[in-house]
């Protein structure tokens, strides 16, 4: 179980996020360290990216319903971590983007991931090609495939490895099991 989500803050179509937006995504068990941010907009995107990454990691054939996903967001030594049941991860947030990656606690090594500027119209295809290129640079010949649910995996070294993609506005990213 691995998941990823990116929000590109430069998207001009994004409306400001405030209390009104929060009611659409909040779970009663959601919690965060008060020291992380006092900016409601930044906080919204931390929760949103975390919940969407967790949703993708769960690989369930259900719709994304952020209010159904509890998440705990903590900060230690400047790093922002997330926890939701047996899924852990971290968030990198700056003025340009919010990126969350997460994985099941049972996975011992941090998955590979990459965030990049998207230049192609078909971002779904572009992010898949980027993953194959990323693996090639590591001397790995990978091939995209799907699991029995129709969700993406990448085959290499004789094994299917979980992978998840995300793209928003001019940014795209992937995460892949090592």
């Amino acid at each position: 179980m691995i998941g990823i989500d990116v929000v590109d803050h430069s998207d001009p179509l994004l409306r400001p996020r405030n209390e009104r937006s929060f009611r659409l995504i909040s779970h009663p068990s959601d919690q965060h360290d008060a020291t992380i941010t006092t900016d409601l907009e930044n906080l919204f995107w931390l929760y949103w990216a975390a919940k969407e990454a967790i949703y993708k990691a769960n690989r369930l054939p259900i719709r994304f319903a952020p209010k159904q996903i509890p998440v705990s967001i903590t900060q230690k030594n400047g790093s922002i971590s997330i926890l939701s049941n047996d899924i852990q991860g971290f968030i990198d947030q700056n003025n340009r983007s919010t990126l969350c990656i997460c994985w099941n606690k049972a996975i011992s090594s941090t998955p590979w991931y990459q965030l990049f500027e998207s230049i192609e119209k078909d971002q779904s295809l572009e992010v898949r090609k980027q993953l194959i290129l990323f693996l090639m640079e590591k001397g790995i010949e990978g091939e995209m495939s799907k699991d029995w649910k129709g969700l993406p995996v990448v085959n290499y070294n004789g094994k299917a490895h979980l992978t998840t993609f995300t793209h928003h506005h001019k940014l795209a990213a992937f995460i892949c099991e090592q």
Partner: peptide, 9 residues
Amino acid sequence: NSAHIVDIV
């Protein structure tokens, strides 16, 4: 994009 579902609401 899923992020825009909130905007649509």
